[in-house]
Amino acid sequence: MAEITFKIFRYKPGVIDSPRYDTFKVDVEDYMTVLDVLEKLRLDDPTLTYRHSCHHGSCGTCGMLVNGKEVLACVTNVMELGTPVVTVEPLKNAPLISDLVVDMVPFFEKYGPVEMPLIRESEYLPEGKPSEEVGTYTRLESCLECGLCLSACPMVATDPDYMGPAALAAAARVVQEPRGQDAPAILKMVDNEQGCWRCHSAMECSEVCPNDVDPGGMIMYLRQKLISRKLKGHY
């Protein structure tokens, strides 16, 4: 157990109009995550707002900046950060509602139209033979829709109309496995300067992705698909 200082970003429209940082000293146990600390703090200060749901990195709601890096608070162990002061801020490149809460509506306005199916075939334990009744094993898609990649992307920072890594990665998933979706239409949708050609391969999205979606790699996959289609069209 150690005492850690938390600097937490606070903003509330009409109450705290110019954002400030509140400082809290917290006794942290070695199993505690940043989300556990926030939960503890909220018992004393119910006005502290943040998003959270599943507490194990499966729902993607608790994305925030911890010491300047985009993480899911629920799977970020405080002690493993190794800093005596931990700074907690909301995600960048998204409208700020209050404290650590950002508005996810713009994220889903980009992401939703791709209509990536939530269920995919499971590639785990390929040696396993599912029963005839089930046919093939399925699993939930990897993308948690947390928005970390959009926050880390330097292009989204200056061009809010850029589709961004999450939606492009979803598009690439549809191209890889259409599962009933219209893959050529999706390819056409991303083939423009607000789609996969805005990316400058900084790969910051893949760096922060909590679930190995590798959005940067997926954008490169889309580009290669588009280029080879274009070349084929010319001869």
Binding site: D191, N192, E193, G195, W197, R223, L226, I227, K230
Partner: peptide, 9 residues
């Protein structure tokens, strides 16, 4: 020139 063409050039 937009999109991929600009990029290719």
């Amino acid at each position: 020139q937009r999109g991929s063409l600009a990029w290719l050039w």
